[in-house]
């Protein structure tokens, strides 16, 4: 299914797949690889551009590497891609009003659960012999 979408996208774009070359500086290349893992491949379901073999993912990898080579920061590159694709490009949703419940929810559940566990333990407390 994923590949069908990708193939169709590739046909529509008709783009030539440029060869991907790693950046010469290993520390910059490592930064690029880490950033790839946080960016969603636009034609995939949940894959990052790091994991996807879609053409569009390859194009985005080239763009990210170019911008890193130009000396842009990760934040600048993210902003550039968000301007182009929207928040949907980020696999780590930005913390803002509409995502507060997402980011805090699990920890509130954990804390409330922890409180219940604590109270249960106190209620059933035995002497430690």
């Amino acid at each position: 299914m994923r590949l069908v979408i990708l193939l169709v996208a590739a046909l529509i774009l008709g783009a030539a797949t440029a060869p991907e070359q790693p950046l010469d500086d290993p520390s910059l290349e490592a930064r690029a690889l880490d950033l790839f893992k946080e960016l969603r491949c636009p034609t995939c379901i949940a894959q990052s551009i790091h994991d996807s073999n879609a053409d569009i993912a390859g194009d985005l990898r080239i763009i990210v590497r170019e911008q890193i080579a130009q000396g842009k920061t990760n934040a600048q590159i993210r902003d550039f891609l968000v301007a182009r694709y929207g928040d949907v490009i980020l696999l780590r949703p930005p913390v803002k009003q509409s995502t507060i419940a997402l980011w805090l929810g699990p920890w509130i559940i954990f804390l409330v659960g922890g409180l219940i566990v604590f109270l249960t333990m106190r209620r059933h407390r035995a002497n430690s012999d």
Binding site: A46, D87, L91, P93, S98, L102
Partner: peptide
């Protein structure tokens, strides 16, 4: 469903939580 701008929740969210 709420009509806010779409977002993705992916691996970085799940692994950090």
């Amino acid at each position: 469903a709420l009509g806010a701008s779409p977002l993705s929740v992916g691996a970085p969210f799940f692994s950090s939580t």
